[in-house]
Every structure is written in structure tokens, then in C-alpha cells.
């Protein structure tokens, strides 16, 4: 595949009929081939991910029927009689992500509407980089924050909340994904043409009415895409849940309980010393494949939804 592409590439200058010194040609060829090679590394990484995940998962599924994997309600790979049902891990992942969304969607959307429709350009330019710092803080630090600051705070509000729970880490992940929602949604709202706003103002609508009934609907696909991409982030988030949500697989949707997510399970197994090739070792790749497919489908969905709004105007 790459060889034919390189051949095509070298044929290009000749077709253009440009005369150049003979010495310049080999360097052109070398430069272009190296650049193409670098670009193909992105493809190689994707192929590597798929190859490794599928190979180890295939070995895993020769021991565990795929039906058990998808329907068993227990995940106890390190027990005497191990059971491998992904559902408890999925439930944990889903619950944490929902808590995160419940926090991040209102905060992120209101921030975006405010920044796009109400704030002065100066305020907007100062605040945006600061908001982005929120997603730049290392996740392990957020894990510390969830375990030793947010959870004790929540324990005062919710009596009987255990030290490990999904509520605290969910909220902290919500804080982390606010910048994704606010900045992508704001971009979408600012892409709405000015004349729509002007028409609305001319009809006597107030700024809030214009923002909520004209700009927001016009930017729906961009805003929804930002939610979807934020979910994808929340689902793949690892350290916060590994530190603060407890690491016991637990089939529940109650955020006040402790539970493990897919990512937390991978961390837990990797921390132990599992021999290469054992079924426990393979199980983290099966869990990883599930996670990969989950985030991939969210990303693809988000991409499609976002493309729709780009074509709108």
C-alpha cells in the first residue's frame, strides 16, 4: 500500500513538468517518503491497538463463551471459580458517566451560552484558557481531590455515604469534562450566523429568548456532539474512579455505592502481578476491547452529529 503511494508521489513533480537540478530530486524523494512514513504511523498505531486487543481477547473467548461474557451478572476473575460477566463493570462505568453528565451538562451548557451570548469578548478570551486548565490538571490529582476532599464533603450532605462511592468520582469527572462541553458548544453557538440573532432581536426578543429559542436550537447538533464527546471522555476516565470509587465489581446503578468500572478493573489487575498469557491477563484485554468499542462508537456518533451542523450554513 505504502510502496505504490510513494511511487505515485515521486511521479508527481515530473508530471508538473518542472525542471529542477538532478541533485535536488533524491532529497525531495527522501523527504516526501519520510513524511508519508510518519503520517502512516497514525494508521499503524490504530492497527496495533485493534490487533493486540483482538488477539488477546480471542484467546480469552476460547475459555469464556461470549454469551457468558455479555450476560453473566458477576465479574470475579480472580476468584477460585472465576466468572466473567462484563455487566457489573458496564453498570459501574455507566453510573459514573451519568453522574458526571448530570453535573457537566447543565454547568457546561450554561457556561457556553453565557460566554457566547452574554460575556464581553475580553472576558471570554481570559476565561477560556483558565477553563481549559481544568482539563489539564493530572487525573491522579483529581482522584486525590475526589477521595479526600469531595467525598468527605458529600458525606456531610448524604449521611451514610461510604468512603468509596461513585457519586464523588462522578462529580469530579463532571468537573473535568465541563471544559469539553463549554468550549465545543460555544464554538457551535458562535458559528450560528449573526443575522438569525438580528432577526430575533428585531422581533423584540430579549437576549435570553434569542439565546434559548434561536441560537441554541440552531446549534443543537454541535451542542449534542459536545455531550457525546464528553461521555466518551467520562467512560474512558481511569484514575479518578480507580482511586475513589472502590474496586469491587458491583451490579448497581446506585451512585452512593462503591463499584468498579471497566477502567478501574484494568488498573486493579495491572497493579497485581499476573503472568503473561494467563486468563486473568487476557481478561483485561477483553475489558479493554469493550471499552475501546464503547468510546469508538461514541466518537463516531459525535463526529456524525457534528458534521451535520457544519453543513447547515
Amino acid at each position: 500500500m505504502s510502496a505504490s503511494a510513494v511511487k505515485n508521489a515521486t511521479a508527481l513533480p515530473g508530471r508538473r513538468g518542472l525542471r529542477r537540478s538532478r541533485l535536488a530530486r533524491p532529497s525531495e524523494f527522501v523527504a516526501e517518503s519520510l513524511l508519508l512514513f510518519a503520517a502512516l504511523s497514525a494508521v499503524a498505531i490504530t492497527l496495533g491497538i485493534v490487533f493486540i486487543l483482538v488477539r488477546e481477547s480471542a484467546a480469552f473467548f476460547t475459555h469464556v463463551p461470549i454469551v457468558d461474557f455479555l450476560t453473566d451478572i458477576q465479574w470475579t476473575p480472580l476468584f477460585e471459580s472465576p466468572r466473567y460477566g462484563i455487566l457489573p463493570l458496564l453498570a459501574g462505568t455507566l453510573t459514573v458517566s451519568l453522574v458526571a453528565l448530570a453535573f457537566a451538562v447543565p454547568v457546561g451548557t450554561i457556561t457556553a451560552v453565557y460566554l457566547s451570548e452574554f460575556a464581553s469578548p475580553r472576558l471570554r478570551e481570559t476565561v477560556k484558557p483558565v477553563l481549559e486548565l481544568l482539563s489539564g490538571v493530572p487525573t491522579v490529582v483529581f482522584g486525590y481531590f475526589a477521595l479526600l476532599f469531595v467525598t468527605p464533603l458529600l458525606q456531610k450532605l448524604v449521611p451514610g455515604l461510604p468512603g468509596f462511592n461513585m457519586l464523588g468520582p462522578g462529580i469530579v469527572i463532571g468537573i473535568m469534562i465541563v471544559p469539553y462541553i463549554s468550549s465545543l458548544s460555544e464554538d457551535a453557538m458562535r458559528a450560528v450566523p449573526m443575522h438569525l440573532r438580528e432577526a430575533s432581536f428585531a422581533m423584540g426578543a430579549s437576549r435570553l429568548q434569542t439565546a434559548v429559542r434561536v441560537v441554541l436550537p440552531a446549534a443543537t447538533s454541535g451542542v449534542v456532539a459536545s455531550y457525546i464527546l464528553a461521555v466518551s471522555r467520562a467512560v474512558g476516565e481511569t484514575m479518578v474512579v480507580a482511586i475513589a470509587a472502590g474496586q469491587q465489581p458491583n451490579l448497581t446503578f446506585d451512585p452512593t455505592e462503591a463499584a468498579a468500572t471497566i477502567t478501574a478493573f484494568i488498573v486493579q489487575v495491572a497493579m497485581g502481578d499476573l503472568p503473561h498469557g494467563s486468563i486473568g491477563y487476557q481478561s483485561i484485554f477483553a475489558a479493554g476491547l469493550t471499552l475501546f468499542l464503547l468510546t469508538l462508537s461514541f466518537n463516531v456518533l459525535g463526529w456524525f452529529v457534528r458534521r451535520r451542523y457544519r453543513e447547515a450554513y
Binding site: L53, T238, F292, T295, L296
Partner: peptide
């Protein structure tokens, strides 16, 4: 591929 890689969770790179 570049777009897709940007959305892959970091722990998947660890598995790779």
C-alpha cells in the same frame, strides 16, 4: 485515524 486516536482513552494505549 488521527481523529480517532485523539479520542482513544489513555488506558487503551497502556494495553497496546
Amino acid at each position: 485515524n488521527v481523529t480517532n486516536l485523539a479520542g482513544v482513552p489513555s488506558i487503551i494505549y497502556g494495553l497496546l
